[in-house]
Design a protein around this nucleic acid. Structure first.
Lengths: 344, 344
DNA sequence: ACGTCAATTGGTACCGCTTCCAAAAGCCGT
DNA sequence: ACGGCTTTTGGAAGCGGTACCAATTGACGT
């Protein structure tokens, strides 16, 4: 670390060189208004000469603000690995943080114990200004804890049991649109593979699926609904199960699961979309690469990351912005897997 | 933040309640040996009662160690988005950090200016114990800066111009194996699509490709070598160009580019592997999902992340461990795109 | 009981910066 | 030139810990 060599320059050094007190030097650094231009200039000059950079830790300690926000992600390893949600989300989050001069502390956890450790160390230990929490399952004790501690935080993916700031894609609409699209194409026996139903997003997409049926005058058949876990393997297993019910089309709640489902369909010697039409969710980069390319519901993942961080920063900086929730629009991207487009 | 409410409990509170001095309380917390068991117990009890957690910033300030390490990633947006390297790498890195009680600070940058800002704020500002730097191009000024500042760091992907600790997959072997495999299958006109040649990894894989040719008594044809950028789009463009040379097989330096290449081949009305065989690199989750599934060189990405962090921590904690570099083994995963396996 | 030495414990000076408060300086009008 | 105000500046008390050093306590040998 820079700390390693003793020659670190401190604020005192700057003050001395500029011939002012430390207080004044500090004022200049923090853009305090009441400093004579001439003085300010002297200090700035000293800073430049010395190559001074404030010690963030010390600043944080006395300001009680660090400009670091935590990104808390509890996610099973296998899911994180294959899901393409992540890179995009992180990129958006990082972009927002960079723009506003914040840093991102990453907390990726597989085991709750580890998460607990970070929670304690970081939240109670006080070096985060706030937290962005990704995909907490319903009923997770984290949320009441955060509320209790009055830690500013934003959820990515709402928890309907708590009234907190959140960002999410319009899951209900997404589920509805995907299903409606299949119905319009004339399919009637439409199955669905959902994510873990303890995630609100999954239940909302499912609700959209069901309502689309009802609005078309059909009653959704529970036998066509299979719960999986947002992984490729899970999608494959779910599709195998679903095949027994003989669907004409399947709405899969993530592209990753759809990839698995697609493999299961092929393994069964069937063709997509001829024998079974498929619609995915996310519009991950992968979707376009599958054979056939996957019709899917596009989520603005990058923007979700950006927005979450942006919202959090607002919450941290303003007293009470009360921008409770943001629901970002999704859209259907039609490719070949649903059978709407001519096959080559 | 927990800081938000005034009721934060400090070390003094603990000391008072336990009826000892702050020094003693501190000793207990840091597991210092010379504390009478009885005293230790009183302090522990007080800590528990008060729900005390040390303030990380304050600790960091006086210890001059934070147990935070930075993960610096400079990567064009389009590449980050589609590349599956990331989630896996992060996961490995996070796992290592969690296990050793370190935190990860994420620095994702698209623009050098932003990177510079983080560099300054974080490295000179002194709240990182060290840095893991991912995929710096050759000649990047970052490395000499880090060396100059004596910041402990580990490179993911070596820079041959500097003698620094690094972790990487065995790129030369990977390139060699992939090419050798194609040669063994009888292909002679073998093209290759490389990553940016300012990345050492790309030049090494290329060298492997060339040496495999030479060892087979063939002279590699420069007309069969096309440089791309590790993105899908780039791979597609490169393949279009390569098609003009009429290769029988192509070794592509990343699965993501291979996906693009595959699309280009299909768009040209050709079949993989019948008309053109393909071998990728990385063994990303995506590889298995392509049609046909991609033969590829498997890199232990998760372990690269894990190892990089582990090495860095060693460097930070031990005086001079001098574990310079680690090269992790790669292996060839044969699937259908190379034509070695029976097509279904 | 007393000296000696090791094990414990307390006191206090930092770590490097912010910020409140009071002192000093500058500006005006008369 | 002087009183009254507003700016600018400096001083010093934190922020919450760590760690060095000295003081206190306890154990043990004689």
């Amino acid at each position: 670390m820079a700390m390693a060599h003793g020659k670190r320059v401190r604020l005192d050094d700057v003050a001395r060189l500029a011939g002012v007190s430390r207080s004044t030097a500090s004022r200049v650094i923090n853009g305090h208004p009441n400093v004579r231009p001439e003085t300010r200039h002297k200090v700035l000059e000293a800073i430049r000469k010395l190559g001074y950079h404030p010690n963030t830790l010390a600043q944080g300690l006395s300001r009680r603000r660090t400009r670091i926000i935590g990104l808390l992600v509890a996610m099973p390893a296998r899911r994180l690995a294959s899901d393409q949600f992540y890179p995009l989300f992180l990129q958006g989050a990082a972009q927002a943080a960079n723009r506003r001069g914040y840093r991102l502390m990453l907390g990726l956890f597989e085991e709750p114990a580890e998460q607990e450790a970070m929670y304690v160390d970081v939240v109670r230990g006080g070096y985060l200004d706030g937290l962005v929490v990704v995909s907490v399952p319903r009923g997770d004790p984290l949320i009441p804890m955060l509320l209790e501690e009055e830690v500013p935080f934003v959820l990515v993916g709402r928890d309907p049991d708590w009234d907190t700031p959140y960002v999410e894609g319009d899951n209900y609409r997404g589920g509805y649109m995907a299903t409606e699209h299949l119905l319009r194409l004339g399919y009637r026996r439409i199955g669905t593979i959902t994510g873990p139903l303890k995630l609100w997003a999954a239940t909302e997409r499912l609700r959209g699926y069901q309502d689309a049926h009802r609005d078309a005058g059909l009653e959704p058949d529970p036998g066509f609904i299979v719960e999986a876990d947002f992984t490729e393997i899970g999608g494959m297993a779910a599709m195998r199960k679903l095949l027994e019910a003989g669907p004409e089309a399947v709405f899969v709640q993530s592209d990753t699961m759809a990839a698995g489902a697609l493999r299961a369909v092929k393994a069964a010697g069937l063709k997509v979309p001829d024998d079974i039409a498929l619609v995915g969710y996310d519009d991950a980069p992968l979707a376009e690469l599958l054979e056939p390319p996957l019709t899917t519901v596009h989520q603005p993942i990058h923007m979700m990351g950006y927005t979450a961080v942006e919202m959090l920063i607002e919450h941290v900086e303003r007293p009470k912005p009360r921008t409770q929730g943001v629901i970002l629009p999704v859209k259907l991207v039609v490719r070949r897997s649903c059978g709407a487009l001519p096959q080559p």
